[in-house]
Simulated scan of single mutants.
Amino acid sequence: MTNSNVTNSNVKTLIRAARELSDSVDLLSFAEPVTHVYNPLAYARKSHEAYLGRVSGDVKVVLLGMNPGPWGMAQTGVPFGEVAAVRDWMQIHEPVGKPPIEHEKRPVEGFDCQRSEVSGRRLWGLFQERFETPEAFFEDHFVLNYCPLVFMEESARNRTPDKLLPEERERLSAICDAHLLTVIRALDPDHLVGVGVYAEACLKRVVQIEDCRGKVTRILHPSPASPASNNDWAGKVTKQLQKAGVW
C-alpha cells in the first residue's frame, strides 16, 4: 500500500530539486560552437512539475537519459517527452513558454508541436504497452534526464553535453551530479538504469560519491541514430531489463 505522506514528501523534494537545478544551470555560460541553450525546466515548468507529481508510490526503478531532445522534452518539459505520449497517455497538457533566445529552426511550440521525437515514442511506447496505464508505471518507475539543457549550434545541430568544452562539462556535471544524488537519496530505488552509455557512466559516478544501494545497469538508447535501435528496440530492451532483474 502506498504511503501518501512519503509520496507527497518525495514529490515536494523532486520539485524543489528541479527548481534548484534550473536556477543553477541558468547561471552557466557556454562558448561557441554552442549558440543557443534551452532550459525547459524554466519555460515548461508547469508541465515538468505536473510530471513530477505523477510519482505515486515506492519507486523501485529510476531510468536516466542524457538531456532533452528538440522535439521531446524541449517541447513538453517531460523527459523523453514525445508530445502524444505526454498529452494523450500521461494526460499532461500545460501551457509552455519560450526560451529567452529561440533558434528559428528549432521553435518551441509546446503541445502544438507536430514533430514526434522517435526516442520518446519508443521509450514511452514500450511503457504504455507493458503497463497500460501511467498510474501503473509511475507506481514504481520514474524517468529523468541527467542534464536539463538543450544545446544547439548556429546550424541548429544538436550538441550533446559530452561534446562541450572540458571546463563547461566540469561545471555542468557538478550541478547535475548533485541533483541526481538528491533524486536517488529521495527515491532510494532498487535499480538505476542508464538509457545509453553516457547516462550509465553518470549513474556509476554518482553512486560512488555515496554508497547508494541501487544496482546500476544499462539499456540500449532508443535513438534512431543507433543502428541497433532501429530493429525491435522494445524487444531488445525488454530482454535487457529482464536479464538485469529489473523486470
Score class of each variant (00 low, 15 high):
Arg45Glu: 15
Arg106Tyr: 05
Gln208Ala: 11
Glu102Thr: 09
Leu149Met: 06
Ser29Lys: 13
Pro68Asn: 09
Arg54Ala: 02
Gln91Trp: 06
Ala244Met: 13
Thr76Trp: 10
Asp177Ala: 04
Asp26Ile: 01
Val183His: 11
Ala31Val: 02
Thr133Glu: 13
Asp58Ile: 01
Ile219Glu: 08
Val206Tyr: 12
Gly245Pro: 14
Gly196Gln: 13
Lys60Glu: 11
Tyr198Phe: 15
His221Val: 02
Gln91Glu: 10
Ala42Arg: 15
Asp88Glu: 15
Arg171Glu: 15
Ser155Asn: 14
Glu167Arg: 08
Leu180Phe: 15
Pro148Asn: 13
Glu104Val: 12
Pro107His: 06
Asn158Tyr: 10
Ala199Val: 07
Val246Tyr: 11
Glu139Lys: 06
Glu135His: 05
Lys236Trp: 02
Val143Trp: 14
Leu181Lys: 11
Cys147Ile: 05
Ser155Gln: 12
Ala44Lys: 09
Leu52Arg: 02
Phe142Asn: 03
Ile92Arg: 03
Ser116Leu: 05
Ala228Gly: 00
His48Ala: 03
Glu49Val: 07
Asp140Arg: 14
Val143Phe: 14
Glu154His: 15
Pro95Asp: 13
Arg87Trp: 04
Trp247Phe: 11
Asn10Ser: 00
Leu180Trp: 15
Gly57Arg: 00
Gly245Ile: 10
Arg169Trp: 01
Asp88Ala: 11
Val34His: 13
Arg106Gln: 06
Gly125Val: 09
Thr7Lys: 00
Val143Arg: 11
Thr35Gly: 01
Asp88Gln: 15
Pro227Gly: 10
Leu27Lys: 15
Trp247Met: 05
Glu102Gly: 06
Val83Phe: 15
Asp88Pro: 15
Ala186Met: 04
Glu135Ala: 07
Ile101Asp: 12
Ala186Thr: 12
Asp190Thr: 11
Tyr198Ile: 08
Lys98Ile: 05
Gly65Phe: 08
Pro99Lys: 14
Ser116Met: 05
His93Pro: 00
Gly72Asp: 14
Asn3Pro: 01
Leu187Lys: 01
Ser226Thr: 12
Trp71Phe: 13
Val193Pro: 08
Tyr51His: 11
Ser9Thr: 02
Phe111Gly: 09
Leu172Met: 07
Ala42Gly: 07
Trp247Val: 03
Pro107Arg: 14
Leu41Met: 09
Val6Asp: 07
Gly81Phe: 04
Pro161Glu: 06
Met90Glu: 03
Pro79Met: 09
Ala244Ile: 10
Pro189Lys: 09
Pro134Thr: 04
Ala244Asp: 13
Gly245Phe: 11
Lys243Gln: 08
Pro95Val: 05
Glu20His: 03
Arg19Ala: 00
Cys212Met: 11
Pro224Val: 07
Gly196Asp: 12
His103Pro: 10
Pro95Ser: 12
Val55Ser: 00
Leu164Ile: 08
Pro148Lys: 13
Glu153Ala: 15
Met73His: 07
Arg185Gly: 12
Gly120Met: 08
Arg122Leu: 07
Ser29Thr: 14
Glu49Asn: 13
Phe111Thr: 13
